[in-house]
Amino acid sequence: MFRPDPSSPISPTEQLVRRHRLHPLELLPWLAVIGTYFLLPGYLPLGSQVLIMILFALSLDLILGYAGIITLGHAAFFGVGAYTAGIYAIHVTGEPLSGLVVATVAAGIIGLISGLIILRTHGLTLLMLTLAIVFLIQETANKAGFITGGADGLQGISMQQIFGQFRFDMFGRTAYVYSAIVLFLVWLFARLLVHSPFGRSLTGIRENITRMHAIGTPVRRRLVTIYAISAALAGLAGALLTQTTQFVGLSVLSFERSGEIVIMLVLGGIGRLYGAFIGAAVFMIAKDELAKADPVFWYFWIGMLLVLVVMFARGGILGLIDQALSWVRRKS
């Protein structure tokens, strides 16, 4: 996170101009992604799930963390992407890359349309409308069983090889590398986006919407734009889940999934890009471990963790690390 340093000898202008430069710590998540592949080959299927949830959380961070749009309906777009990828694979072609594109575009369009409608409102009304959208879409998927498989889920998805070369193998190696590359590209894009003037203006809208109107910002257009982009990326995450698991069920569109992704992001830290990485990883791994110990009771511990984070670490795990680092710096 950019923290201007008034005591630095570097001029204020220069500090602002340099702020997007890559910090070595930003490579840490990628070392972890690569390390997992070589050191923990038995965990690659879980690893892919984690990468997909990171992507989903990252898409949420763009609207929740940067633009300040609070939503409990983000699974709507994840689900639209997941179903689109599944239906496309069954009825058009099992070629994965074009499937990703189609699913991303479909989710983006749904995001654009719903954004145009619901972003006229804010606060509690907006929150309720995001919920309404996820329920509407889930119920539609449930009723449209002839194409979605309804409550049984969409079965019989078979994916072709990526570039005609890489088969989705039973050890999840291809799925892992595939998810990692997609996540990497999205990370590059998201990083550019939040450091662009557009991204800065989203922060402005979050910080003070009245001021943004007064400097001539077309606020609603900006919000709808980022909402559509975020929806598209959520759809991309959903499509990855479909392609790597070769199944889609109604749970991709559930309110629980919408809530879980918010929990992951809050856990990691909102509005800082890397909160998605750490939050999704901690959540998914904790869930996996806790569910092994007790398949019913594990949610209790997730709840406990969330209570602790919200009460004692408002900036999430990354916020906590920040505080620890600045404490160490003060001591030395």
Binding site: H195, S196, S201, G204
Partner: peptide, 23 residues
Amino acid sequence: LENVVMAVSEHHGKAADMFRYAG
């Protein structure tokens, strides 16, 4: 400085630019 940059970017019509770093 960021407060003022926000206004200056908007005035010059650069604030919607999403494919270049603000810097």
